[in-house]
Design a protein around this nucleic acid. Sequence first.
DNA 1: CATTTGTGACTGCTATATCGGTCAATTAAA
DNA 2: TTTAATTGACCGATATAGCAGTCACAAATG
Lengths: 111, 111
Amino acid sequence: MKTHTRTYSRVTREALTMMGGLIRLARKQRKMSEADLSARIGIARSTLQLIEKGHPKVEIGLVFEAATLAGVPLFVDEPSRLAPEISRVNDKLALLPQAVRRPRSEVKDDF
Amino acid sequence: MKTHTRTYSRVTREALTMMGGLIRLARKQRKMSEADLSARIGIARSTLQLIEKGHPKVEIGLVFEAATLAGVPLFVDEPSRLAPEISRVNDKLALLPQAVRRPRSEVKDDF
DNA sequence: CATTTGTGACTGCTATATCGGTCAATTAAA
DNA sequence: TTTAATTGACCGATATAGCAGTCACAAATG
């Protein structure tokens, strides 16, 4: 074994807690049990529990599905607004050089 | 093998594409190469590539780390604003009954 | 009250995500 | 143009996430 212990930044941990809490809140507001929602998503109840706890090692796809089916909006209020936003990002990306060079010798990462 | 083919809703797929695109955009704007960012996160470059493509089967913790280190804000503009938001969610959760009963026989999920 | 349902916390098995590496093609800089 | 770096696309090995199941306890109903 490699004892692959990974660390996550505070922002990440808090964002995960937030995400899980929002899903749990939305689920309860819609009066769904853990079994209900997990079945609807097509995952085990134990996995949903990890999601609501904000566990970092869960497929992001499952978390987003949980959020979606629980009614937590992702990025935008209306689901239909997502496609245009993606286009905007792609447009911006197209303006940048395909390959990036010479990262600034010092990059600030202050958390 | 179980041929465990999972499907994801359109909203989830688009949200993942969005997330990945934002990370890629932010990375380039900061003139970081894939190698730079992945090293900073502590993951393989191949994994970062999956993240930027919006692949669903990636640890959400890694995606959030990538977003954080690339400079993509999660949920809020300032990182410091996250803790209070979490408290708000917890407060709301405390007001609800611990266990939920009788899910409405029909729950709408229209995507 | 009794009964039914939801939740929390485990556990072993198995499919698989991640790693670390390679190679070719592109692209930016000198 | 030449050169060095970035990117895209692979692949085998292995640590592990998710599943399915169980059990005890909590807590809503009637």
